[in-house]
Design a protein around this nucleic acid. Structure first.
Length: 230
DNA sequence: AACGTGAGCAACCGCGGCTTA
DNA sequence: ATAAGCCGCGGTTGCTCACGT
């Protein structure tokens, strides 16, 4: 049998130092990503491989954008969350240079509140009486101050008060259980194909057999050609 | 100026599925 | 065939900083 992943008593925890970052960057620059278990020892780091992977993916990767999310990115996150639910890695996969952790944090700290302020339940993207909407004047003011050019299409279509649409467990299931066509105007223009062996959908289907029905057979194109909504 | 509070974010934890010995 | 390690994910925690009193 294999050795345990790492000796926890011999590993550092908490914030990474610049020296540690540098070691990790140097090592991956030379050897590339992969084999996270061996990496810490090979790179001279007293860290768990898991921790190294997280640090690299979320912070050190050279292709990371960092900085504020654009309005387009915000809109896309909201729409993808309505479609996919809390599948942050999938959502981040549609946002070049963004990580699942970053998207998740941004959702929890900013976007959730925005939706709540508009009387939309962020869990299912439906108008909810338990999230009292601001008056229109306040709403537009808050939208303007919070960076939205106009009301996103999602809200325009979802902000129809109708108690029948409430109380659904999560966004993904709400879409699946949408007999009334709550989201008719989202125009989910996705290509339905037999998944290619290399497609994201295929990989995801292999990984997450539970609850990935939404993705089954969806050929998720690269971000630049994504046509989820119009 | 000092303290309290809340927001934002980096990092950790635990779990599930896959891989491998 | 099976048990245990590996990997990646989502949820949660805890630290830091900005802001208000």
């Amino acid at each position: 049998m294999r050795k345990p992943c790492c000796d926890k008593q011999d590993t550092n925890k908490g914030a990474w130092s610049k020296q540690e970052d540098q070691k990790l960057i140097e090592y991956i620059r030379k050897h590339g990503e992969g084999c996270w278990r061996k990496l810490p020892q090979a790179a001279g780091l007293l860290r768990c491989g898991k921790s190294c992977r997280l640090r690299w993916i979320n912070y050190l990767r050279p292709d990371l954008k960092r900085g504020n999310f654009t309005e387009d990115e915000e809109d896309l996150i909201i729409k993808l969350h309505a479609l996919l639910g809390n599948r942050w890695s999938l959502i981040a996969g549609r946002l070049p240079g963004r990580t699942d952790n970053e998207v998740k944090n941004y959702w929890n700290s900013h976007l959730r509140k925005k939706l709540i302020n508009r009387g939309i339940d962020p869990n299912n993207h439906r108008v909810s009486h338990s999230f009292p909407r601001l008056q229109d004047s306040q709403n537009s003011a808050s939208a303007a101050s919070s960076g939205f050019k106009t009301q996103p299409k999602v809200e325009q279509h979802l902000a129809k008060p109708n108690a029948d649409y409430e109380q659904v467990s999560d966004a993904a299931s709400s879409l699946e259980n949408d007999p009334c066509g709550l989201l008719p105007d989202l125009n989910l223009d996705v290509t339905v194909t037999v998944p290619a062996s290399s497609s994201i959908a295929n990989v995801e289907e292999k990984r997450k057999d539970n609850g990935s029905n939404l993705l089954r057979g969806l050929d998720l194109n690269p971000p630049s050609t994504l046509l989820l909504f119009q």
